[in-house]
Amino acid sequence: MPQKMNAHDWGDPPKNWAEEQARRTALEVRRLRGKKSAQWLADRTKELGSPITRAVISDLELGRRRYVTSAELIILAAALDTAPITLLYPPPYNETIELVPDVDEPKIGAVEWFCSDSNAARYKPGEGVDAFTERTWPLYAARAIDKLEESQRGLLATLAAEDDPDSPLAQSIRRELDHISKRLAEYKGDNDAR
């Protein structure tokens, strides 16, 4: 569902779903740069190693350019100190949008789907939950592995600082480390098998 037009919006409304994606991104880029100029944003993208010209930024914001590449989405987000997903699906999240052409869903569902959140399978049109889960498993497993390894590092540091290696705290930490090691082996083994 298209957002409402405003003073900084495109002169002609989007003609299709793809143009609506670019328009939503353009509006959020404009909002986030605030009073800073398009040249400022162009300079930031150049500093980050992937320049987007002032003219391209202006054309996007005014609707003369009706698409954004994935590389541009990423570098604009970095230049504006945000995540790419927030440019593509900006707040508020209680609105309904077109997830894909002719499929309306809550905007937060689109965010979850785009980020492969485990709740997102219900928003996935097509083959359903099993296919979605199978195809996004490596990402889910990588996230879990990262969190487990972070916990492991913290517990190892706490254990190293513990004065009494036989204290109840040290024993508890070793049990938790053993549990984490088993979970890591499961995730890594299952992820390698896919």
Rank of each mutant, 00 (worst) to 15 (best):
Y89D: 10
P91D: 13
P92C: 05
L62P: 10
E72Y: 02
I85D: 06
P84I: 00
I85C: 03
T69Q: 09
I97K: 10
A83I: 10
R66G: 04
D104T: 15
R65S: 09
A83T: 13
D102K: 15
L76D: 08
V103D: 05
T96F: 10
E95Q: 15
S58N: 14
V100E: 13
P84M: 01
E95K: 15
A71V: 06
L62N: 15
S58R: 07
D59F: 04
T82G: 08
D104E: 12
T82I: 07
T82Q: 08
S70A: 10
G63F: 00
R64E: 14
P91R: 11
S58E: 04
R66T: 08
E98P: 06
S70V: 13
A79E: 09
I74H: 05
P92G: 02
L60I: 02
P91A: 13
V68P: 01
E98K: 03
D104L: 13
P101C: 06
R64D: 09
A77I: 03
T86K: 13
D81W: 07
D104F: 15
D81H: 15
T86Q: 14
T96Y: 12
I97L: 10
V68Y: 00
Y89L: 13
E72V: 01
L80F: 04
Y67L: 11
T86C: 06
R64Q: 13
L76C: 09
D81L: 03
L62G: 12
L88W: 09
E61F: 01
D59L: 04
L87G: 04
Y67A: 14
V103K: 08
S70Y: 10
P92M: 02
